[in-house]
């Protein structure tokens, strides 16, 4: 399997990259981890004329805490997230999710920015970021703009990032005490795309009432999806079996999975309910720990 010929550019500054994007327009593709793009090029499902490799641009590989915000550079590799102690202390969901993405060698290359910018509802980080209410920093030659994750995904492989822009940073608000998060997906074998995946973050007050909740779903809709009615079912309530069951029911009803080799639509609607219950419990346990 061999890609069609293309030109290769390797800018060392963002400005240089923007210049190249301007010059090549739609003919160019940004190369980050490359583990979605290169396989597609090898299969000749994608044949860009130019690859703009952003791996040599410094300043995009940080994981830093800035006040109540966690900032993750777009070029941070999955394996770096896996071992990022402070990030995982705040968001244990990252330990859950990275372990389930592809395999260790792929995680050494795959980047969080690429995972999101690919705009694929089968990827795992979109659901996580929806649950965490992340903000996405998109850079262009005229500067940066910050987009809430809810406004980031537009369609199948389509995001808010325009042809002359680059996703550069992910910003995640840190919630206070009593917050927990969790992710799980059913997969046919390790490293597979999800049959169904659920990301949950919630905050419980001293009485056990949900004061904040975010829920994202993986591979259960054409566009990465936040389970808003499920969130509403939990918000301001205590986590009784009935409340959780209602949230699960909403997610089953609201998602729009399709039949495929992983299972039927009905199975996936069932699974999302089961997984949501389990992730609510797991997140709540972590919140109370």
């Amino acid at each position: 399997m061999i890609p069609a010929p293309f030109d290769y550019e390797s800018p060392t500054t963002l400005e240089e990259a923007f210049g190249l994007l301007d010059r090549y327009g739609d003919e160019a593709k940004i190369l980050s981890g490359g583990h979605s793009l290169i396989p597609m090029m090898k299969l000749r499902f994608a044949s860009p004329e130019v690859l703009i490799d952003i791996n040599n641009i410094p300043g995009l590989s940080h994981i830093t805490k800035d006040g109540n915000t966690m900032k993750i550079g777009a070029l941070v590799r999955e394996s770096e997230i896996e071992h990022a102690k402070e990030l995982i202390a705040h968001f244990p969901i990252f330990a859950d999710v990275t372990k389930l993405i592809a395999d260790p060698s792929v995680r050494n290359r795959g980047t969080i920015g690429g995972n999101l910018a690919h705009g694929d509802a089968a990827n795992d980080h979109p659901a996580v970021m929806l649950a965490l209410r992340a903000n996405i920093v998109i850079s262009g030659k005229d500067g940066n703009r910050t987009v809430p994750i809810d406004e980031f995904f537009h369609g199948f492989y389509m995001t808010e990032v325009q042809a002359n822009e680059i996703l550069t940073e992910i910003q995640i608000p840190i919630h206070g005490k009593g917050t927990g998060s969790a992710y799980h997906k059913m997969e046919r074998k390790v490293g597979d795309y999800a049959t169904a995946g659920v990301a949950v973050q919630l905050t419980l007050d001293a009485n056990g009432t949900v004061t904040y909740v975010g829920i994202g779903l993986t591979n259960l809709s054409p566009v990465p999806m936040r389970a808003e009615r499920s969130e509403a079912a939990l918000l301001g309530k205590k986590l009784t079996d009935e409340v959780i069951a209602e949230a699960a029911k909403c997610a089953s009803e609201d998602c729009s999975p399709s039949d495929d080799l992983r299972g039927s639509e009905e199975y996936k609607r069932h699974l999302v309910g089961v997984l949501l219950k389990r992730m609510i419990h797991k997140a709540a346990e972590r919140a109370m720990a």
Partner: peptide
């Protein structure tokens, strides 16, 4: 895990190792 699956037009539906599920050390 494994089965070669065809649709009614004779298209193979899992003709790569992404979908033809060879077990790893985890399975």
């Amino acid at each position: 895990y494994e089965e070669l699956i065809y649709d009614e037009d004779g298209n193979i539906l899992n003709g790569t190792l992404m979908d033809y599920l060879v077990p790893t050390a985890v399975e």
